[in-house]
Amino acid sequence: MIEVSEVRKAFNQGRHNEYWALKGISLAIEAKKVTALCGPSGSGKTTLLTIIGCLARPTSGRVRLKERDISGLPERFLTGIRRSTFGFVFQQFNLIKGLSALDNVMLPAYPLGGDWRALRARAGSLLNSLGLGHRLEARVEWLSGGEQQRVAIARALVNDPEVLIADEPTANLDTALSKEFLAILETLAGQGKTVLLTSHDSLVIESSVVNRVIEMRDGQIVGVR
């Protein structure tokens, strides 16, 4: 579904502090499977995730989404692809404080201009399915870490994307909540979602939910399991 070939990414290119986060990555991500990128901090996991998720462009190399080269597209088009194809769950959840759980979930769909009532119903049922039906109107800062993550997952799913991208999803969760997350992941995989996540949590990497683990170090792939 997604093919990455010879992708390199530099930060501060041409300056004294130039840094190559990715040094020629090539890999293919299968549809409807759960793929995990693992490796220590600074290995380039998150950078690769941002490039695949159309949040950033590679310095060189190509990214193909369903046979279409998307690495050179202007921002406007990348936003469109990001909105329709990918749903993101960030490490810090990145929910907007002061807004309710329901409002946060509805946010990605606002620019699409669909029917507001239908959107509200969809967001409500997503939160319901994640066990947050009783917290719809609660402000996100009043929610526990696990609840916040489920709101973030519902937000990632509201536009019904094919691919869910999660960056260190269990980094801020205890074991029980991490297991809860894996259960949600299993359901999503069962629904046919393609999942790409980064993690250095053994609980995630060794989980049976994860179909494939790609090990990274110093901006390169060092192993595939």
């Binding site: 404080k97 002061g98 807004l99 409002d103 509805m106 946010l107 769909a109 606002y110 620019p111 699409l112 201009g113 669909g114 029917d115 507001w116 959107l119």
Partner: peptide, 22 residues
């Protein structure tokens, strides 16, 4: 209709956003 719905959604978010810093 999409444009109007979009503006409505943006206004809705803006109002919620303004209410946060009352």
């Amino acid at each position: 209709k999409t444009w109007i719905e979009k503006q409505k959604a943006l206004i809705d978010f803006t109002l919620a956003s303004l209410a946060r810093r009352k």
